[in-house]
Write a protein that binds this DNA or RNA. Structure first.
Lengths: 214, 214
DNA sequence: AATCGACTTGGGCGATCGACCAAACACTAG
DNA sequence: CTAGTGTTTGGTCGATCGCCCAAGTCGATT
């Protein structure tokens, strides 16, 4: 139907397995994904998992980093286009609403963060992406004259993942609930107290230096 | 040494198992805790797990809810004593520093929230405790004249758990980084935009009504 | 038609899992 | 000393796990 050569069919299988991994991680948790229920979800023979991927953890790592990379690419694009102070946060709020809406993927990032805590390989990949996004957000805030861009970026991103977590406990939560508060945080207006964080200094991007984009 | 009667020894075993569960959930994850590695950590025979507890999930549920209940009791006490507007958040920041400090337990709540998403029984228990804390915080903020107590409480609590999550990826994060931003959020001063949330209305406590305290 | 490489299949390996059980143990009350 | 209660032990059950492999299928190349 869609595939003609064997290589094409192999590519399709890999894509189906990665998609099934994204779904299952959100639904039943990172550690509950097994070769067999993963293959069943993908509509594929269980033996194919270890033919196309080095191991089950390697498959999950690839699924998580790919999903995160595509999501963050969109966010980064929006962030770079944001001129208005709060536009950066607004762009991310857009993301939040999109992910909170379709439950199937809403917990993928939280699961990935937790798994990364215990898997050094995954952690290196995930942490790089996360710090890159944080840097982009902090830069956007600094460009808008925000007095504490780094600390605010940390809080905004932490709020996003925490929100996903709490939404599992309280389904009535919606992005609209927290949006006004986050918007206020992003406003360049009021200071944040001079105890910490010099006015505006974001530091070098931990990722950009390398020519690895796409 | 410590135990004399068999009932005393049984109580001690239960306590050791629950303590071991708290440790292991943080270290290796909720789903990775097994009867055998749990018993080994507790220094106890594996068969005792199913003698003292109905099942492994039941043990983990009890460990998580007990840990959460004791923590939230302290927070609630501090919150009720807070007169100053930002004192409530200050009290919670105290908690945050305490938990971020000793890594062994820092991920327990995050793991419990995630597990609660997929376990209706655990979810009922955990969600009740979480909503209770949120209500206490919102009440404290409203008492201080905060314009958007509920939304702010949601954001502050989400930030806490998100912070724990991100700290696993970026160990340089400390509570001091986000404290100024959260303090600013808790200030009664600036409005939050009138788009949502009527000035100050917190609603009934979802827990207190029942005479179940302690 | 013969060959080749990529992919797929079904089966099986040892290990670990949650749960259960009968027997042994420890201690108290009568 | 006996009976009774609560705890502990060692072992076992069926199920599932990640991973591996020999044989088979299928389209592309020659």
């Amino acid at each position: 139907m869609t595939a003609r050569t064997s290589a094409d069919r192999g590519r399709a299988v890999r894509a189906r397995l990665l998609a099934a991994a994204r779904e299952l991680v959100s639904e039943i948790g990172w550690n509950a994904v097994s070769t067999r229920n993963l293959a069943e979800r993908a509509g594929v023979h269980a033996g194919l998992v270890h033919y196309h991927f080095e191991s089950l953890p390697a498959l999950l790592r690839q699924a998580a980093t790919e999903a995160m990379r595509t999501t963050l690419d969109e966010s980064a694009t929006w962030l770079s286009r944001a001129d208005d102070p709060a536009d950066g946060v607004e762009a991310l709020l857009n993301d939040l609403d999109r992910y909170a809406a379709d439950d199937p993927a809403s917990l993928l990032f939280v699961e990935a963060y937790l798994a990364a805590t215990r898997d050094p390989v995954l952690r290196a990949e995930i942490a790089g992406l996360m710090l890159g996004l944080r840097h982009d957000l902090a830069t956007a805030l600094a460009r808008a004259g925000h007095p504490a861009p780094e600390a605010t970026a940390v809080v905004v991103l932490a709020t996003f993942d925490g929100f996903m977590l709490h939404k599992g406990l309280d389904p009535e939560l919606s992005a609209a609930t927290i949006a006004p508060v986050l918007r206020r945080l992003a406003e360049a207006g009021a200071g944040v107290g001079s105890e910490s964080a010099p006015p505006a200094d974001v530091g070098p991007d931990p990722n950009e230096p390398k020519g690895e984009q796409r």
